[in-house]
Lab assay of single mutants.
Amino acid sequence: GALPANLDDMKVAELKQELKLRSLPVSGTKTELIERLRAYQDQ
């Protein structure tokens, strides 16, 4: 599914939920979580 547009405004817990939905690792800082989601979306 498409990512929420406001990733930077989301809480870390919400970002981790998005990562879990995509079976991605949820470790790292908020910035790393956002980068991981964006990289996944670009595939």
Score class of each variant (00 low, 15 high):
28 G>P: 00
7 L>Q: 01
6 N>R: 10
37 L>D: 05
35 E>P: 02
20 K>N: 08
43 Q>C: 10
16 K>D: 01
25 P>I: 15
24 L>C: 03
41 Q>M: 12
10 M>S: 05
5 A>Q: 10
15 L>T: 03
37 L>C: 03
40 Y>E: 13
22 R>D: 04
27 S>K: 06
11 K>P: 07
31 T>V: 10
32 E>Y: 01
12 V>M: 14
7 L>D: 00
24 L>N: 00
31 T>H: 08
23 S>N: 11
18 E>V: 07
6 N>W: 01
35 E>G: 11
2 A>G: 11
28 G>R: 00
21 L>D: 11
2 A>S: 14
26 V>P: 14
7 L>H: 00
4 P>E: 15
21 L>V: 11
3 L>T: 01
14 E>H: 13
22 R>S: 02
25 P>H: 00
36 R>K: 06
23 S>Y: 11
36 R>W: 01
35 E>H: 05
32 E>A: 09
8 D>E: 15
10 M>I: 05
5 A>N: 14
29 T>R: 06
15 L>W: 00
38 R>F: 01
19 L>P: 01
20 K>V: 10
26 V>G: 10
4 P>A: 12
39 A>T: 13
40 Y>D: 15
23 S>D: 12
38 R>Q: 05
5 A>C: 01
26 V>T: 13
30 K>Y: 05
35 E>C: 12
37 L>Y: 05
29 T>K: 09
30 K>P: 05
3 L>N: 13
38 R>G: 10
31 T>W: 05
3 L>G: 11
11 K>L: 06
39 A>I: 10
42 D>V: 12
41 Q>K: 14
3 L>A: 03
6 N>C: 02
18 E>Q: 05
39 A>V: 14
35 E>D: 12
28 G>V: 00
17 Q>P: 01
23 S>I: 04
8 D>L: 15
42 D>A: 14
26 V>N: 02
31 T>R: 11
12 V>A: 10
31 T>N: 04
41 Q>P: 12
40 Y>Q: 07
6 N>K: 13
43 Q>W: 14
17 Q>E: 12
31 T>K: 08
41 Q>W: 12
1 G>C: 01
3 L>S: 10
35 E>R: 10
11 K>S: 10
16 K>V: 08
40 Y>C: 13
11 K>W: 01
15 L>A: 04
11 K>E: 12
6 N>L: 08
38 R>C: 05
21 L>M: 15
12 V>C: 06
38 R>K: 08
2 A>T: 13
22 R>L: 06
7 L>S: 02
16 K>W: 01
36 R>I: 01
27 S>W: 08
34 I>A: 07
8 D>N: 10
37 L>N: 04
17 Q>V: 06
39 A>Q: 14
37 L>Q: 01
19 L>D: 01
41 Q>I: 10
3 L>P: 00
39 A>E: 15
18 E>M: 05
15 L>E: 01
32 E>P: 02
19 L>E: 02
29 T>A: 09
28 G>Q: 01
11 K>H: 07
17 Q>R: 09
42 D>Y: 04
9 D>E: 15
26 V>H: 05
16 K>G: 02
3 L>Y: 15
37 L>S: 03
17 Q>H: 00
36 R>M: 03
15 L>V: 09
17 Q>M: 12
3 L>R: 10
37 L>R: 03
8 D>G: 14
42 D>H: 06
24 L>I: 03
23 S>H: 13
28 G>A: 00
21 L>K: 13
37 L>M: 07
3 L>C: 11
9 D>C: 11
22 R>H: 06
16 K>N: 03
40 Y>N: 13
26 V>C: 06
18 E>L: 04
34 I>D: 02
2 A>L: 14
9 D>P: 03
39 A>G: 14
6 N>S: 07
5 A>I: 15
19 L>M: 13
40 Y>T: 12
17 Q>Y: 05
25 P>W: 01
15 L>S: 01
43 Q>H: 10
24 L>Q: 09
10 M>G: 00
4 P>T: 14
2 A>V: 12
35 E>Q: 15
27 S>Y: 08
27 S>C: 06
23 S>K: 13
5 A>W: 01
28 G>W: 00
16 K>A: 04
24 L>V: 04
20 K>C: 15
3 L>H: 15
23 S>T: 09
11 K>F: 02
40 Y>H: 14
3 L>M: 10
36 R>P: 09
10 M>D: 00
24 L>E: 02
12 V>Y: 02
22 R>G: 02
32 E>W: 00
19 L>G: 02
21 L>P: 02
7 L>A: 09
8 D>M: 08
34 I>W: 04
20 K>L: 11
31 T>E: 12
27 S>A: 14
29 T>S: 09
22 R>V: 05
24 L>D: 00
6 N>H: 01
18 E>K: 04
1 G>R: 07
32 E>T: 08
15 L>M: 02
38 R>A: 14
27 S>V: 05
10 M>C: 03
35 E>S: 12
17 Q>C: 02
16 K>H: 13
12 V>S: 04
37 L>A: 03
6 N>M: 13
22 R>Q: 09
7 L>V: 06
6 N>F: 03
9 D>R: 13
2 A>I: 15
17 Q>L: 04
11 K>G: 09
6 N>D: 07
8 D>A: 14
42 D>W: 04
16 K>Q: 14
43 Q>A: 15
42 D>N: 14
23 S>R: 10
20 K>M: 11
1 G>N: 06
15 L>R: 00
12 V>R: 07
